[in-house]
Amino acid sequence: MIHARLQRQLSAYADGELSPDERREVEAHLVTCIECREELAGLRQVKHLIGRLPEREAPQEVWQGLRRRIAQEEGRPVASGMLETIRAAFRRPAYAVAAAMLVLILVAVPLVKGRIDRLQAADIGVDVYVREHALVSSADPFVDRAYIGLLVGDANLALAGARRAPGEEP
């Protein structure tokens, strides 16, 4: 088990990417394990050869092929593009948190607003009733229009947001 674990770390060891403790553990193992010493030597040789390889430009036809594929990707239906964007966004935690908060706001705002509207309706409802009924009653030929004016005026003022005196009712 230990041998297999340390063998997987040989490439990182060759590149100097291990912590000091891990490095010491690998070095102690190399002293006793011929197989791992041989594999390390092979790895170092490959890295050396790769390092000596010259850099080459990709052939022009490769770039043209890539451009064609990109153009084809862009021509795909928007929905799948959007879907991919959403998927990509969810691969990043910050975007996922922002999206969750947006959903929360979209759900919570109507709920809170609905609750506020409901309480406000209880405050103004009776004034709306009185105003509406007073206007309906104005068709009565015997009604006192001055009193209708008083009732409608008081209701208007309450609906405009004027504060009532303590204990005062519609």
Partner: peptide, 18 residues
């Protein structure tokens, strides 16, 4: 005389305390 009946769903209006 006239009487007027008003109706509002309770989900949209708390009961007035008057």
């Amino acid at each position: 005389g006239v009487v007027t009946i008003f109706q509002t769903p309770a989900s949209r209006m708390a009961f007035p305390n008057v």
